[in-house]
Simulated assay, not measured.
Amino acid sequence: MNAARTGPGIGRRHVIGTAAGLAAAAGAAALGLQDAAPAQAGQRPGRTPRAQRRLFLGTYTSVAGGGTGIGTGTYDAASGRITATGVVAGVADPSYLALAPDGRTLYAVDEQQEGAVTTIALPDGGRPEVLGSRATGGAGPCHLSVHPGGRWLFSANYLSGSVAVHPVDPSAGGALGERTDLVAHTSPPPGPGQDGPHAHQIVTAPDGGHVLAVDLGTDAVYTYRLDDSAGTLSQVSYAALRPGAGPRHLTFHPSGRFAYLANEVDNTVVVCGYDPGSGRLTPGEPQSTGTGSGTSYPAQLLVTADGGFAFLANRGHNSLTRYAVEADGGRLRLLDTVPVGGDFPRHIAFSPDERLLFAANQKSGTVTVFSVDAKSGALAPLGEPFAAPVAVCALPL
């Protein structure tokens, strides 16, 4: 057996990085010290001008210089300019955020020793409202995702090396029920330099029936079959990366036949074949991040909806790598790297129309915004970095 259901485990917390103690005071005040409020005078609560879109920012609340909850703001859909509007308080260490498929509910991890996931309602014409939290059964949850059907929430406990499932109750505004499953990664054994399993991501495959969990500690990606009626996971296979790779984040090509994996420890990306029928993932050969020698701690890959380009955030190198996607998704060709304009880009995200790319820069406490050329995928910085306390996740709506 490669995974087992178990209670919470304890291990070494994944490095958070230096807190953004030098983040601009104005940004810290706007995102960390007041309740969510209208972006402009005279504007109705919860309503934004047509050119303005909502933005939510994840942070750490338990470190010096961090925020006091989930940062809220708006951004201009044309210029990318961000305006702070306040904070959703009462959420501890909301380091990763995810939106429900219907767009009416936000979920956040509480990345603490006794991990939890929190539900936030996003009512039309009203302020975000915290509905409650549920324990994940593990320590240090660092990632979550909602099943495309909207009935299940998955979370990854980094410190415990386990993944959890919670039911979503649409009749209660998307609030979460008691956990229906908890699966621990027990084999293969930890990779070089690791003290145990460290689940870093959990995501549903495009086929909808399989759920994949990326574990940095065991150098493996686990595939589970989801029982959509019971909310339980049954392991069907796992893909082994080379020892010491440290896989962190997986992103699927729109075809559903390939996936791209960022390896944090050995500074590589890997193109993986994926079989929707079996759920089996087959890693290819590691390739360059375009950042030279040494470890740049690659964090995350994005792929455009048309499958033409992929982008990688490099934390140590403070850059974004651009790839052309070729061979119907089966090959990544490195094009260039550009400075991210901040320090330690932990998370990147597209705006819904993919005209903008947002980078949350943890150590500088900033969010930088880029325009994305639809034809070439070229990135161009827009405006000045936006100050946000220990910004580790950006979710533009």
Rank of each mutant, 00 (worst) to 15 (best):
R331W: 13
G307Q: 13
L302V: 12
T304W: 01
L281G: 05
G279L: 11
P276M: 04
G284K: 06
V271A: 13
N314E: 01
P286G: 04
D266H: 12
Y323R: 08
T321Q: 10
D275Y: 02
G308L: 12
G307Y: 07
L281A: 00
A305G: 14
R331K: 14
A310P: 04
S296L: 02
G316K: 05
E264H: 05
Y323P: 07
D306W: 12
G284T: 12
D328P: 07
A313H: 02
G277C: 09
P283G: 05
P298C: 06
N318M: 07
A305H: 11
Y260C: 03
P276D: 14
A324R: 15
R315D: 02
V325H: 01
F309G: 08
N314P: 05
S296G: 14
L261Q: 06
T289N: 09
A313P: 02
F309I: 09
R315V: 11
S293I: 03
A327S: 13
A310K: 00
C272K: 01
A299K: 07
Y274A: 00
P283M: 05
G330E: 03
D266V: 13
L312M: 10
V325A: 01
G308P: 06
T321I: 09
D306S: 10
A313Q: 04
Y297N: 14
L302P: 12
V303C: 08
A299V: 14
Q287Y: 07
V325T: 03
G273F: 04
P276H: 04
R280I: 15
N314L: 01
L281Y: 02
S319C: 04
T268E: 03
E326D: 13
A313T: 11
H317Q: 14
S296F: 04
N263C: 14
P286H: 01
